[in-house]
């Protein structure tokens, strides 16, 4: 299967006053369509920067980012907005639901941006809320829901427009361990169901355990890559594993 995301020699340097901070040194990575890739690292390792670069929220100092063959770093703001609208979904650590909108309205927001009619998007959003188990909370405002519930609304929102890629930045960072399991289960299941590519940024090893591949990031470089499910990932090593010996089971 083709690579949906390709990063080549990516470098990002922040200038803080006189000092230069190297967030990403020289990173190359390919992610396959349908892969669940986890970027694992401590705070300040550069994992979030990587995600931001992939989503086009920041421009790299050097290197190229290709998503679906398109050079993200060269796109204008306007094109990026359109691109995100059509191909990307986001789940945030602090949910980031709009407080004045109901769960239903929050979920249907990406569809609203696309300009779909109210009846169409309401139906899709309703189905989505049902899928995350919140059909009883359709009319609730974010302030009337628990953290877990809010994040489920967030997940519904990320998947409602059927994007090919979903980015999640510490999606369970604000949740307790039981809710974390629920939420991670939900995200994984949804992405698998439609063969969507999932890129999660976390510092939590347990969460990384859900992924097909774990990319360890340290001081702006890829330290090592753990392949858990070789069939789904894009990696030379994985190819070797698959072609070399099918007998090797997943997990290293």
């Amino acid at each position: 299967m083709e690579n949906i995301i390709e990063l080549k020699n990516l470098r990002k340097v922040y200038r803080i006053g006189e000092e230069k901070v190297i967030a990403l040194d020289d990173v190359s990575l390919s992610i396959k369509k349908g892969e669940f890739c986890c970027l694992l690292g401590t705070s300040g390792s550069g994992k979030s920067t990587m995600l931001n670069l992939m989503a086009g929220l920041e421009k790299p100092t050097k290197g190229t980012i290709r998503i679906k063959g398109q050079a993200i770093e060269k796109m204008s703001e306007k094109k990026l907005a359109k691109f995100r609208q059509e191909h990307l979904g986001f789940v945030f650590q602090s949910y980031n639901l709009l407080p004045m909108l109901t769960a239903l309205e929050n979920v249907s927001m990406p569809l609203t941006f696309k300009g779909l009619s109210k009846s169409v998007r309401d139906k899709k959003a309703r189905d989505m809320l049902k899928a995350v188990g919140l059909e009883t909370h359709i009319k609730h405002k974010p302030s009337q829901m628990s953290g877990g519930q809010q994040q489920r609304v967030g997940i519904a929102r990320a998947f409602v427009a059927m994007p090919e890629i979903v980015f999640a930045d510490e999606p369970t960072g604000n949740l307790d361990s039981r809710t974390t399991k629920e939420v991670m289960g939900l995200i994984t299941e949804m992405a698998r169901e439609n063969n969507q590519t999932l890129v999660i940024v976390t510092h939590d090893l347990e969460i990384a355990g859900y992924a097909d591949r774990i990319v360890h990031i340290l001081d702006g470089n890829i330290e090592k890559i753990d392949i858990i499910n070789a069939r789904r990932v894009s990696n030379e090593e994985a190819d070797n594993i698959i072609s070399g010996a099918d007998a090797v089971p997943a997990g290293v």
Partner: peptide
């Protein structure tokens, strides 16, 4: 924050 979220979710400028 809301404006940022809307932008990330693909709201046109």
């Amino acid at each position: 924050r809301e404006i940022g979220v809307m932008k990330v979710l693909g709201c046109m400028l």
